[in-house]
Simulated assay, not measured.
Amino acid sequence: MSENNTPNQNAQTQQPLSGKSVAFLATSGVEQVELTSPWEAVIAAGGTPALVSTEQGDITAMQGDWEHGESFPVDHHVGSVESSAFDALVMPGGTLNADSLREDEDVLRFVRGFFEQHKPVAAICHAPWTLINAGVVEGRTMTSYSSLSTDLKNAGANWVDEQVVVDEGLTTSRNPDDLDAFNAKMVEEIAEGKHEGQTA
């Protein structure tokens, strides 16, 4: 520790998400590493992650679209929790996960709540499918898995092919190869708190 840093300042630097609660929205079919890597990054930054799902009990992740991964315990059913209970939202990808979530009205209500309250949202890979259905991408600059680019453009987003894109509290990335950059920007945006430009 340098002489210029007091212990309190150093602790704050190391724990930028201290006291913050972060919802992870996922169901079975979620890309495992896109759930576990950001989850670990939130914990490492001092935050408290919670798994919110359309399912009860456990969800089963996937490694790619074909190989089953591990199971993870659900903390809250999406129909019984409000976005106001959390400081931020993280949306992992996975084709099956995103395709299921985007058809659920409780999911869309939950997601819209974060935008209405100007709270940070981070979405990777196929997760922006759900943002399209929630009606929150128009006018936003963002990226995603490449096959979603036309869908996002048709919904009014400015789609770009970049490792990570940040637009007023909305952080997006393309695929698992981008996770280091995604996690860093996700933590930074959550630490900053509400963004007035983040709106439904």
Rank of each mutant, 00 (worst) to 15 (best):
M1Y: 05
N4L: 15
P7I: 10
N8W: 11
A11E: 13
A11P: 10
P16D: 13
S18Q: 09
K20I: 08
V22G: 07
F24P: 04
F24C: 10
V30N: 10
Q32V: 04
V33M: 03
L35N: 05
S37A: 05
P38V: 12
I43C: 11
I43E: 14
A45F: 03
G47A: 12
S53Y: 09
Q56E: 15
I59H: 04
M62P: 03
E67K: 11
F72A: 06
V74W: 15
D75L: 10
G79D: 06
V81W: 01
V81K: 11
E82K: 13
M91H: 00
P92E: 09
N97I: 00
N97V: 00
R102Q: 06
R109E: 11
F110C: 01
E116A: 07
P128W: 13
T130D: 05
N133W: 08
V137A: 01
G139Q: 07
Y145L: 12
S149N: 04
T150V: 14
D151K: 01
L152E: 00
K153F: 12
V160D: 03
V166C: 08
T171I: 07
T171F: 00
N175T: 07
P176S: 06
A181W: 04
A181Q: 06
A184T: 10
I190R: 02
A191Q: 15
A191D: 10
K194E: 08
T199G: 09
A200K: 02
